[in-house]
Computed example of a mutant assay.
Amino acid sequence: MALSPLEISTFYQLLDRGGSVLDFTRGALDDFVGATIGETPCETYQLPMMKSLRACVKDLDDERLFKLFSALFEYYEQHYKSEYAASPAGYRDISYRRERADQVELCKKALTREHSGLNPFAQSSECLKGQFSSEYMSQQIDALNTLRNENPTDAIGKAKELVESCCKTILKELGVIVQTSWGMSELVKATMKVLNIATESVSDNLPEAETVRKILGSLSGLVGGIAEFRNHWGSGHGKAADFEPLFRRHANLAVGSSITITEYLWNTYLWRKETGKLAS
């Protein structure tokens, strides 16, 4: 699941203070967001404070968006309780306070729902910044195998995220700058190149060269297929009211493909690291 446009809009209503974000200065907001998800919206986007935050939010995946809004909502609750709390007499004395209370309740319910929905994948977003590990991969694969039966739509979205997490970690560990514009295909292509397993890296001297190239080329096709699966039927995008999710067999296909790609890339990375064959 993901926060709906209405829910995101409600968060903005709580945070927006005439173009500012609560009582933050630009520097303080960058420090807060940086400590939470590693982004600096004001410095990065060079827009007015609230517009910078909105621009940053548009570039976040569901997990990092959830983490950011959770932190901002917690800050709001700690510093702005007078805006929405009941009066000593037991009622909210002005319409403004009632409106704020309704907004707080909607945000709280949305975060509670998302927290519950993200439990199978409730690892810190730090996994996308270098903490991906063999243990983490095993946990996510186990979770995917469960989720593809319980919620095929979410499974398709998480299958793509697993591959992306793996690629981003390998690229960061090897000093490759990941461009924000890169999609899944670009991430996998760059990862295969740095691991020296791209089709053009296969030596013609190998007797099985052509076969290896075919297999590696098929992996590239799988990557494109998973990305299209997620874009059309996964949990990463809003859906129309008449949206019909795919059957479990389609989730099984996406999950199985993502596991195959992730295990291959990660095991290749570990093998090259252990044998000293990583590119310097």
Rank of each mutant, 00 (worst) to 15 (best):
A71W: 02
A71Q: 09
L72Y: 00
F73H: 14
E74P: 15
E74Q: 09
E74D: 09
E77P: 04
Q78S: 14
Q78V: 08
H79I: 02
H79G: 06
Y80K: 11
K81G: 12
K81S: 15
S82C: 06
E83S: 07
E83W: 01
Y84R: 08
A86V: 15
S87F: 13
P88Y: 04
A89P: 08
G90P: 02
Y91C: 08
R92I: 02
D93R: 05
D93W: 02
Y96T: 12
Y96W: 01
R97G: 04
R97Q: 13
R97T: 11
R97F: 06
R97W: 05
R98K: 15
R98A: 13
R98V: 13
E99P: 04
R100F: 07
A101F: 05
A101T: 02
V104G: 11
E105G: 04
E105S: 05
L106M: 15
A110K: 05
L111C: 00
T112C: 08
T112E: 08
R113S: 09
R113H: 09
E114Q: 03
E114V: 05
H115S: 14
H115P: 00
S116L: 14
G117I: 00
G117Q: 07
L118K: 09
L118G: 01
L118I: 12
N119K: 13
F121N: 02
F121K: 01
F121P: 05
A122C: 05
Q123G: 04
Q123F: 11
Q123T: 14
S124R: 10
E126W: 04
E126I: 12
E126C: 11
C127F: 03
G130C: 05
Q131N: 14
S134T: 10
E135T: 15
Y136S: 03
Y136K: 05
M137A: 14
M137Q: 03
M137S: 03
M137D: 01
M137F: 03
S138I: 06
S138A: 15
Q139G: 10
Q139I: 10
Q140S: 00
Q140R: 07
I141E: 07
A143H: 00
L144E: 04
T146P: 04
T146W: 08
T146I: 15
L147G: 02
R148P: 09
N151V: 01
N151R: 03
N151L: 01
P152W: 11
T153A: 12
D154Q: 15
D154C: 13
D154G: 08
A155K: 00
